[in-house]
Design a protein around this nucleic acid. Structure first.
Length: 206
DNA sequence: CAAGAGATCATCT
DNA sequence: GATGATCTCTTGA
């Protein structure tokens, strides 16, 4: 079920769409933190002005030029991490930004009261939309407890990976939109390289 | 409800 | 020295 390198080593726009509905798993010791991918953005090639790689190879962007199937994590605005998956062939800079997850919390006696416990409950329901805990690039990294030690991690290893649980997302369930927060990117700002699952309550923006 | 500002720092010039 | 693949809070209509 774990996606292999061959999945990531393909055209980025395609990988970005096919990642929707897959499950991101991060193992910390015996615990796993899991989220279903519901929103992605593609950053493709050396020309894409929205991509960090458009300024050429630097120590930071080197990973984007590396082989597919690794993580690329960086700090943005001094306080949030963004989680990316490197795609395509070595020396071609491209990656998919994971923008939103639907949090998957294993049911236990302590949290299965979610939503039914009423006001003041110790386990409030996982909120939807605004107020969610993983509906944005910065927030999902907090949810996953991602930090820069994971930068460059191999997604075919056993620390962090993506699983296919055979949930088929049909093309008509995928919405396509302009990427967020890249107004400086000129013509590239107009490319509809953001993908999300329609009618899903956990995407960052509609 | 929309718009604006502040937080805060690695990276690049 | 400037800036950003963000988020939250405050302000004002």
């Amino acid at each position: 079920m774990k996606l292999k390198k061959s999945f990531y080593n393909r055209p980025t726009l395609r990988v970005a769409q096919e990642l929707l509905g897959k499950y991101l798993v991060y193992r910390i010791g015996k615990k796993k933190i899991i989220g279903k991918i519901v929103e992605t953005e593609a950053y493709v090639g050396p020309q894409d002005r929205a991509s960090h790689a458009s300024r050429g190879r630097t120590p930071r962007t080197e990973l984007m030029f590396g082989p597919a199937g690794h993580t690329y994590i960086y700090l943005i605005y001094g306080m949030y991490y963004c989680f990316n998956i490197v795609t395509e062939a070595k020396d071609y800079p491209a990656a998919v930004l994971i923008r939103a997850l639907e949090p998957i919390i294993p049911q236990t006696p302590f949290n299965h009261r979610q939503g039914g416990a009423g006001k003041g409950a110790k386990n409030p329901p996982l909120s939807k939309g605004v107020g969610g805990i993983s509906n944005g690039p910065g927030k999902l990294c907090r949810y996953l407890k991602i930090d820069k030690k994971l930068n460059g991690a191999d997604l075919t290893g056993n620390i962090i990976w993506v699983e296919d649980r055979k949930e088929k997302i049909l093309p008509r369930e995928i919405a396509r939109a302009k990427r967020i927060g890249i107004d400086y990117a000129g013509q590239w700002q107009k490319k509809k390289w953001r993908f999300y699952i329609k009618n899903n309550n956990f995407v960052s923006r509609i």
